[in-house]
């Protein structure tokens, strides 16, 4: 049985019985869609973000650095991408994290695998994908996010760009510290605070995105967009990736919208590539990273991400059609 059945039941009762809308009407379909998705997604966000926060409390960056220091190309990149998923990371900590990694002997390419995976495979994106697209697409997104991070890090490692790290970074003396071990009470308090913080920040985007999505769901004819952004248009993927770059802060609002776009004929690979660009490539992050690396490496970082994400988009358009 569908575990979300109760949400559907409540939405149906509200829409068709309480509001008296016709299930066959456009308005009825849109309202039902909205009343089903909003409570479902918000409930999933609370549960999953809480669980993720508890898991993350076991992987402070100090511990992750220990795992990765003096790691090698390839193996180190895979490990870094995986740790990027479970280590708590916010872009405001990117600078101390980068310095800490580099100073303790984590190779540059391995550091970048971490820096790409960490924002890309984030719990909010995964929850929305799971809730709106199902586990297959969420799983594909997870695997392809890790792939982009691993490939990107390997390429940067191979290019031998250690001279592109800002000079002052090497001069900073990093003190010794052991990660402070938490009690279970502290882990739960951390997770509660994390949920309040994340859900408090993203809920307006989720509601707004789903509302707009619901309108499109009801009123735009199915396959209306297939002509422009369907699998037949090879330019759709790179254009989608470019469009994704400036949209970072709205990741939570964008996924509900793109879920509707796939219904209207936009190819799945194009949508996945677009989402990756939204989440992983953001101008604020480039500005923060500019504090520790030189412009040439920033440009390489952006180009590699652009190319790999676009390639993944094409791959899925080809595989999933």
């Amino acid at each position: 049985m569908d575990i979300f059945y109760p949400f559907q039941w409540v939405a149906d009762r509200l829409t068709y019985d309480l509001l008296g809308l016709d299930p066959a009407s456009k308005l009825g379909a849109s309202v039902d869609f909205f009343l089903y998705d909003v409570p479902k997604i918000l409930a999933m966000l609370v549960v999953i973000v809480f669980a993720v926060a508890v898991i993350r409390s076991f992987f402070p960056p100090e511990k992750t650095r220990g795992f990765l220091s003096h790691s090698r190309l390839y193996g180190g990149n895979v490990l870094a991408a995986l740790l990027g998923v479970v280590t708590p990371f916010c872009s405001c900590s990117a600078v101390p994290l980068f310095i800490g990694f580099v100073e303790s002997g984590v190779p540059l390419g391995v550091t970048f695998s971490f820096l790409i995976a960490s924002p890309m495979v984030n719990e909010v994106a995964l929850v929305l994908l799971l809730g709106l697209f199902g586990w297959k697409v969420a799983g594909l997104y997870l695997v392809s996010g890790l792939t982009v991070a691993i490939i990107g890090g390997i390429v940067i490692g191979k290019l031998d760009l250690e001279d592109q790290v800002e000079d002052y970074v090497r001069q900073i003396k990093v003190g010794e510290s052991d990660a402070v071990e938490l009690t279970w009470a502290q882990r739960f308090a951390y997770a509660r605070g994390y949920v309040a913080d994340i859900v408090g920040k993203v809920w307006p985007y989720v509601v707004g995105g789903i509302a707009l999505g619901a309108v499109m769901h009801g009123y735009i004819p199915t396959d209306a967009l297939a002509k422009w952004a369907g699998p037949g248009n090879p330019l759709a993927v790179p254009v989608a990736v470019l469009m994704g770059i400036p949209l970072y802060s709205n990741a939570a609002g964008i996924i509900p919208l793109v879920s509707v776009l796939t219904e209207k004929g936009v190819a799945m690979g194009t949508v996945l590539a677009f989402m990756m660009a939204v989440v992983a490539l953001s101008v604020p992050e480039f500005i923060i990273l500019r504090k520790v690396i030189k412009p040439k490496l920033i440009a390489i970082f952006i180009s590699i991400n652009f190319v790999t994400i676009t390639a993944i988009g094409y791959l899925f358009n080809w595989v999933l059609r």
Binding site: P60, P61, E62, R65, P88, F89, C92, S93, V95, P96, L97, I99, G100, F101, E103, Y168, I172, K173, V174, G175, E176, S177, A179, V180
Partner: peptide
């Protein structure tokens, strides 16, 4: 940043009491 890193902190915010790191991230 140099002073922050001096305490071995990699995730902010952090709390240091009388030069002892008590909490980070």
């Amino acid at each position: 940043m140099g002073e922050i890193m001096g305490y071995g902190v990699m995730s902010t915010p952090a709390l240091v009491v009388d030069e002892q790191l008590r909490l980070a991230g």
